[in-house]
Design a protein around this nucleic acid. Sequence first.
DNA 1: CTTACGGCCTGGGTGC
DNA 2: TGCACCCAGGCCGTAA
Length: 315
Amino acid sequence: MPELPEVETVARGLAAVLAGRRITAVRLGITDFMEDPEALRRELPGCRIEGVQRYGKYLLLHLAPANGSGACGCLLVHMGMTGQLVLEPAAAPLPPHTHAVFALDNGCRLRYTDVRRFGRLFLATAEDLETKLAPLGADPLETSEAEFCVRLACRRAMIKALLLDQHTLRGLGNIYADESLWHARIHPTSPAWRLGHKRLVRLYRAVRRVLRDAIRCRGSSISDYRDAAGRMGSYQQRHRVYGREGKPCFRCHAKIRRILVAGRGSYYCPRCQRAPGISSRSAPSVRFIAQQGGGYRARLRTGCSLISGARSNHP
DNA sequence: CTTACGGCCTGGGTGC
DNA sequence: TGCACCCAGGCCGTAA
């Protein structure tokens, strides 16, 4: 399940090798998950790959047109749950469920393999790119503590749902949301606005630490994930809660639980991550907000308006 | 507008 | 052996 760290790992792996390469041929298999397969077949051959970029969970291959004329395009790849984008010698045998093969001018090929076909392949114009990417929220690794808090502090939804919501923050998925909440000792069903500034800061730091560590480990390989060279990541060995139902918490040895939050299986420690509203001692609640006085709320208000203004000028 | 929820995509794994 | 069913995660439409 490629989330931010996995897509970042793939993007880095591809950027090193793909920059400057030309696509010589395109071969497609099952195309029902591509928006316009004909456009891929028609437009891609001859294109030069200018660069590779990650945006949330999207991978962007920036393209220069075949003969130097015409509009620049961008191949947008979302790897869904089981997508793999792998660069390998053209002679390697193609694994099952390979649905797109891009031959390159250096004898290598880039293949897209996806068992579930929950991924997306899309040839985008600058305009398409704007439509797709502008609504996405902030990148947790490029966001300041203040902006992170402002985006969440005025929301009434459950914190786990918000971490998963790509319009609030881009790049987090189920694994890293759960891991971050464990590190920050926050219960997944806590309403965001009840967390208070202190916990939001803790969450901000946890999210960034988890994502950075996961990138360092080249991502988590739960089932299908492989990097651009076809290698597994190793962050699954560092998972503290994800997939560990019934096993002891690394901090307190309580049994990890699994509940459904926002329709997703969510793992947490019932002792370290207290349910909201149960312990009046630890709940931030109304008293906390009252203590902060108008200053805190005023900062939220101005912050919110700043954000909504800044939202429209994404790349 | 915000939030909650259900359904959809697909096929591997499980249990009978 | 075969079959039905559950589930994964992102995203979208709908309803409150």
